[in-house]
Design a protein around this nucleic acid. Sequence first.
DNA 1: GTGCCATGCTTCGAATTCGGAGTAATTTAG
DNA 2: CTAAATTACTCCGAATTCGAAGCATGGCAC
Lengths: 167, 167
Amino acid sequence: MTDDAPPLDAEQLGAYFALMEVSSLVQHAVEQQLRASGDLSWVQFSILARLADTPGGSARMTDLADGVVYSRSGLTYQAGLLDKAGLITRRPSSDDERSTTVTITDEGRAKVAAVLPGHVDVVRQMLLDPLSRRDLNTLGAVLTRVRDHLRAAPPRSAKPRTRGGAG
Amino acid sequence: MTDDAPPLDAEQLGAYFALMEVSSLVQHAVEQQLRASGDLSWVQFSILARLADTPGGSARMTDLADGVVYSRSGLTYQAGLLDKAGLITRRPSSDDERSTTVTITDEGRAKVAAVLPGHVDVVRQMLLDPLSRRDLNTLGAVLTRVRDHLRAAPPRSAKPRTRGGAG
DNA sequence: GTGCCATGCTTCGAATTCGGAGTAATTTAG
DNA sequence: CTAAATTACTCCGAATTCGAAGCATGGCAC
């Protein structure tokens, strides 16, 4: 077991709880707005936005799943919904037959364009408004560093693909 | 409608995305750890932790729901699970008969104590390690300001309690 | 005291999520 | 080239989540 796990002090706890609460609140509000303005969930919007931001408007399922923190099966489900709604198309990748290439449709782009202003509004109102430009830069810098750290050393997804060599 | 919603610039987008991704990653990892070490979900842990931190170890459902960003029905469900597991007890409040007072049991406290070290470990490893003390303070301060702002002007939970006479 | 609305919680049905099993295709080893 | 391992995705069942409706209690007006 853990021999010594010194508790977190007030500052650490405060930062942790504030992070979780703020992100929860923001995500909840964004989800409501997205649902009301375009019948989209947060995940669906994330998928569409990511596709819209990609040069060809296409990506493989895996790339999508990596970008969005999401299970593969959940992504399949949502992609099915999006497909049925005509916002994306799916077809086997030409390069790898086992891979599915997802492409955003014009209707999908229109949907993103339609909900984006409201989305931005909510984010601005909830997250950006109370922050000075300086605070914003700092927040971005700090969180980016954390994210890079997480990507470099994921505690759960660490899949040493060559289990034998270096440990 | 939104007449003009100027898009977010790179810094704003970066901060927003980084916030959502980091919190998602951290929550996911914490959830895995909690599940593995004590068969608890994040919400269940939040409930227990909040109760354990309360003087009498008790709280009303409403207070719990306010603290955790959660629907009432979801809280009822989780409280039922926690009750069945013997980690909390529920009984009608002596003050308000319609209110349910939730109290953490000794077993509940033991559970919290059991999973806390691992929980702290994960948080430290994922969030705290890559941050300097200075960064941590800044992060906490900035996020706290955002949270206060959100609590002061909730865009969705705004519940004008005097509905204007009409019913 | 009686009637009416607000509040607190639970139940219900529908939708979403996850992990694991299953299928198909690519890569690697010999 | 053939067999085994790996990778990519989908299907399935179980668990969790939410919003709306329902039930009971409390506060208030009269």
